[in-house]
Write a protein that binds this DNA or RNA. Structure first.
Lengths: 190, 190
DNA sequence: ATCATTTTTTACCCTAGGATAAGTCCCCAT
DNA sequence: ATGGGGACTTATCCTAGGGTAAAAAATGAT
């Protein structure tokens, strides 16, 4: 305990102190300021992040130059461009700090080494990543059932405290509306 | 060969005739007519479908009673409510034939038995399902970058020939617009 | 063939949200 | 403190798409 990453990985299994140490030392701790680009896109993503605190946004800059947020990731969640990380293909998506964040990162290489030492870890991690992916796709699908104010309020519940640290511009880019519309919408909710 | 399911599963591996037989006999072949409900939702989904031909729609009936299509699945793709199928939890989503379809289905139980006989199959299938999931989430994310006519045209490319077999009502429910809007939109595209 | 039902289209009016422009506020660097 | 830039808001106008109603076309059943 005292560490969310370890807690997550030892679901249904108790880790020895040595195992914990092995895992933790494969990750590098770092911080990032809001708007810092953690993965710029248009290349292979070789990093897997784990969020200790703060919010990341995963998205893309579309052809018209608009920033689009596919989804937000919060503390206790992993973040990578999965297709790229797994298959080594070029990713168009980018990963950006939506608030000040504390995170841990591990490279594909380091993770492979870790898998050799702890074979069970591969399946555990793959399961976690898949579960998270399904959660995100669910959230997006539910967007179809609500209007913008409904989606805004749903987001506030999904990421409590998001308003305290994430810019409204980024939130608008997730909702698929302009910052102006979000501003108007927020006024109507009073 | 001559069988899309086998072709898909033997990626990077050659199956013996016995293995092929084992797999094929675990699946049950069936057909369904357009609008036939293959999985009604609000219970645990214990079936994995493989589509030989035709189109399925996976979706939900929302609180206002509107049918919503999360995504279409076409020949050569698997279809199940993954979260439910894997973890045995209740699924709200439903699976419905969007056209006449030929498909193969396997129960969770039969699949587990098959896994015992062919241990490599688990990972192969999980990979395929994950890959498909990522593809679907990608498609949904791209929706944020286009307007309704753009999304309509993108769909026509994603599922060639969809107009021949799937109702416009179902297509509208995927695009998140009313059939009336789709009709108007289609007229404008000429 | 005929009738009933469903799908698709058309038309009307109305509203949510886009585009543009400009204003306010806040943060930061000098 | 002061000026500049980004974040957020406000306002105006405009358009895409919703709601409703109803016609037209296709489908199916008898």
């Amino acid at each position: 305990m005292g560490n969310a990453l370890i807690a997550l990985l030892q679901t249904g299994r108790t880790l020895t102190a040595a195992e914990e140490q092995l895992i933790l030392s494969a990750f590098t701790e770092r911080e990032a300021r809001r708007d810092e680009v953690l993965f710029p896109g248009d290349k292979v993503c070789r990093t897997l992040f784990f969020i200790d605190s703060g919010v990341l946004r995963l998205g893309r800059t579309d052809d018209k130059g608009n920033d689009i947020t596919y989804f937000f990731l919060k503390e206790g969640q992993f973040c990578t461009i999965l297709k790229s990380f797994q298959d080594g293909i070029i990713a168009e998506e980018q990963i950006i700090a939506a608030s000040e964040v504390r995170l841990r990162s591990v490279t594909r290489i380091a993770l492979d080494t870790l898998y050799e030492q702890l074979p069970w870890l591969r399946h555990t991690l793959e399961q976690l990543l898949q579960r998270q992916l399904m959660e995100k796709i669910d959230l997006r699908n539910r967007f179809l059932e609500r209007d913008a104010p409904g989606n805004y309020q749903a987001l506030l519940e999904q990421v409590p405290g998001i308003l305290l640290h994430v810019s409204l511009k980024d939130i608008a880019s997730y909702l698929g509306i302009t910052p102006q519309s979000l501003s108007r919408l927020r006024k109507n909710l009073l």
